[in-house]
Amino acid sequence: MIRLKYQARKEMLFALMLLPSLLGLLVFFIAPFLLSAQMMVVDNPVGRNFVGLFHFFATLGNAAFQLAIRNTIVFMLMSVPLNMVFALLIAMMLRRMSGIGKGILGAFFLLPLVIPSGSVVHFWQSLFGLNGFLNGLLNNEPTNWLNQDFSIIFIVIIFLWKNVGFNIVLFLAGLNLIPKDYYDNAATCGAGKVRQFFMITLVYLMPTTFMTLLLSIVQSFQAFREIFLLTGPFPHPSLYMLQHYLNNQFAALDYQRMVAAAYILTLGIVAIVLVMLYVQRRVMNYD
């Protein structure tokens, strides 16, 4: 009886601790998001004639929106896996180093994360721009490397520079948790390095991999800031991202299309998270 009361009191306290965050989220994110649906289903803010899901489908069919979706997916399909692969590779190399060297080099890799993008923008422009250092170095025709069909590659490089350190730290921690005996045992059983990597390293890194995947997606959405600062509101078509589209709707104060786009994206993200959680549950059942 007394135990039960104790547990109930504890739960009360937890609820109290959760309340400010939950309430805030409700007020500033969830409630206005749900209420904004009514903006989407009318033809304009003045007339307010009900048009159903017209804006939702009009946005889906919009050429600029489709371009933005395509570019964003291309960027994510490049940046997210590369971010994870490079981080794992560097983490595995760093692991071979001894104490001090590992700490110092690790800090170097993490450093770009704390550099505000605004402060490096001019550096990147001086590197990749029309009269940029890269052209001088290559003795090239003046080319703006950030205004080409393949410019996305340079954005990916900048993205990796900024974000790979975070995932290196995560992978290093994950690698350190794998007992060394596993490798020794595998080696005595005749498993080669490659087999050890796939059967031990990758399997036991699963929780870390999910974490890096989730964070890489968050980070890849944040890369828009770099693209925007580097190339302005109207970049080369290959760099036109979802955020450009949304920013332009914001600038035009076109609530209908803005909310429609927000709903489409939210549905997309919900789908992604559901798939990830499902896979995670499936894969992580080994323990």
Binding site: P32, F221, Q222, F224, L246, I272
Partner: peptide
């Protein structure tokens, strides 16, 4: 929480702005 965390800034700016 995870869904809101994953949403691009421009999407969450819409409800933020309305509120």
């Amino acid at each position: 929480y995870i869904v809101i965390m994953l949403l691009p800034l421009q999407v969450t700016l819409v409800p933020n702005f309305i509120m």
